[in-house]
């Protein structure tokens, strides 16, 4: 399922809403999550999961083609941990 398929589904479920409003709603939700993470905040959606930011220290990596050692700088990466309810649903 893609974002646009999700929008189409929600628009069908909510015939009183304009498709463009549904689109804005979906975009807003993911934008809010992204902007919270970019401020270092955590987003916790009980039953679904939690988005957080993890620190990765700098390390010496290797160019896989040449085998040359390269310094990889420290960075922060988004992380998602599946919520308990969703995990159970997957294995239900």
């Amino acid at each position: 399922m893609t974002k646009s398929e999700l929008i189409t589904y929600l628009a069908e479920e909510n015939p009183h809403l304009y498709q463009r409003d549904v689109e804005r709603i979906v975009t807003t939700v993911f934008d809010e999550i992204a902007s919270a993470l970019s401020q270092g905040d955590r987003v916790e959606l009980r039953g679904f999961g939690a988005f957080s930011v993890k620190h990765r220290g700098s390390r010496v990596g290797r160019n896989p083609r040449t085998g040359e050692a390269v310094q990889v700088g420290a960075k922060r990466v988004p992380y998602f941990k599946t919520g308990k309810q969703l995990r159970e649903k997957l294995n239900g």
Binding site: E32, I33, Q39, G40, D41, R42, V43, E44, L45, R46
Partner: peptide, 11 residues
């Protein structure tokens, strides 16, 4: 920097 946890209500 005040870090917070965003939940359904803020979204």
């Amino acid at each position: 920097m005040a870090r917070q946890t965003i939940t359904r209500s803020q979204l």
